[in-house]
Simulated assay, not measured.
Amino acid sequence: MKKNILVLGGTKFFGKKTVNLLLEKGYQVTIATRGNTPHAFGDKVDHIILDARDGFHEGWREVTSHSWHAVFDNVCYTKEDARLIIEKLQGNMEQLFFTSSMAVYQGDKDGYEESDFDPFTYTIDPEKNVTYGEGKRQAETVFYTEAPFPVTSFRLPIVLDTDDYTERLLYYVEKGVNEETIRFQYSDVLVNYVKGSEAAEAIVWLIEHEKEGIFNISSRDAIPVQTFIQWLEEGVGKPIQVVYSGQPEPDSPFSVKHDQYLVSDKLIREGFELSTLEEWLKPLIRELRAQVENK
């Protein structure tokens, strides 16, 4: 029997890639979305209109009328979202897979490992300002301390690909092609990212193998910002004018004040092969350059 998988979200970027890969592998996939973004899956998926943040939305009736081998939640951002999933789906699914973020980690460290944020011991402060990172910390804490079902979370850095709707890498490629100055805070901080297609492959692999727990998913290595600039110069075929200001650069999406990268050795030890940055980031820069030049 084909496994029945519910995907909350899944119409954009690596969520879309994950759905396509699940379909290729023969899973029976249902997507649940608010219906604001058309999906490209045709009749290959069932589609439930659902606002997953509204506990009274009529779509929950259909969602809870089924049993799910797995639920992939790509749209949970807060403790309230997490508690609603627990309330609605306990007893209706075997395992939850949840998109978290590198943003759960805090402070300057030589690479973040999964143990650097422990949702089992984290105390939710109701008075704390809920940023994106804090929302993900609280959501993880609720899932791991309150859910009656197994939970797997994916902690991702910035995700890049040709269809990245945030266009963060495209920002730098366009600057390079147009010979405009690029600004960073520091040149020697270490960073890493993950390619959208590889993120989807890792997520599907974890679902297939029913892995439980917390997993960083990133490139297997990290590079200093100055190496990224060198690769950008190679990719656009022009020297890059760059300023390292020592000050926050909010308009420069890859600019950070200290090392910010994931150590994904745990996933590798489990048996999934991750790529190095050079293997995919250099070709991706060239692909985006061609997009810019062909506009």
Results as ranks from 00 to 15, higher is better:
14 F>Q: 13
14 F>N: 08
14 F>M: 15
15 G>D: 02
16 K>G: 08
16 K>Q: 10
16 K>I: 00
16 K>N: 09
17 K>S: 11
17 K>N: 08
18 T>N: 10
18 T>R: 12
19 V>P: 06
19 V>D: 00
19 V>Y: 01
21 L>C: 05
21 L>I: 03
21 L>H: 06
22 L>F: 07
23 L>N: 01
23 L>R: 01
24 E>N: 14
24 E>L: 10
25 K>H: 09
25 K>D: 07
25 K>R: 15
25 K>G: 05
26 G>C: 10
26 G>L: 13
26 G>D: 11
27 Y>M: 09
27 Y>D: 08
27 Y>W: 12
28 Q>L: 10
28 Q>R: 15
28 Q>S: 15
28 Q>E: 14
28 Q>G: 14
29 V>K: 05
29 V>T: 12
29 V>E: 00
29 V>M: 12
29 V>P: 05
29 V>F: 04
30 T>C: 11
30 T>P: 12
30 T>L: 13
30 T>S: 01
30 T>R: 14
31 I>L: 04
32 A>P: 09
32 A>L: 12
32 A>C: 14
32 A>W: 06
32 A>Y: 12
33 T>V: 10
33 T>R: 05
33 T>L: 02
33 T>P: 09
34 R>C: 08
34 R>P: 06
34 R>N: 04
34 R>Q: 09
35 G>W: 02
36 N>R: 12
36 N>V: 03
36 N>G: 14
36 N>E: 11
37 T>I: 14
37 T>L: 10
37 T>H: 06
37 T>Y: 09
38 P>C: 04
38 P>R: 00
38 P>Y: 02
39 H>E: 11
39 H>N: 15
39 H>G: 01
39 H>T: 07
40 A>N: 03
40 A>C: 13
40 A>I: 02
40 A>Q: 13
41 F>K: 04
41 F>Q: 07
41 F>S: 04
41 F>I: 00
42 G>A: 14
42 G>W: 01
42 G>I: 08
42 G>T: 09
42 G>M: 14
43 D>A: 15
43 D>V: 04
43 D>L: 08
43 D>F: 05
43 D>S: 13
44 K>L: 04
44 K>Q: 14
44 K>N: 14
44 K>C: 07
44 K>D: 04
44 K>G: 00
44 K>H: 14
44 K>P: 05
45 V>F: 04
45 V>T: 00
45 V>M: 07
46 D>W: 07
46 D>I: 02
46 D>L: 01
46 D>Q: 14
46 D>V: 01
46 D>A: 07
46 D>Y: 03
47 H>V: 01
47 H>I: 00
47 H>T: 02
47 H>W: 03
48 I>S: 09
48 I>E: 15
48 I>P: 12
48 I>F: 15
49 I>A: 08
49 I>D: 02
49 I>T: 05
49 I>L: 04
49 I>G: 06
49 I>S: 13
49 I>W: 00
49 I>P: 05
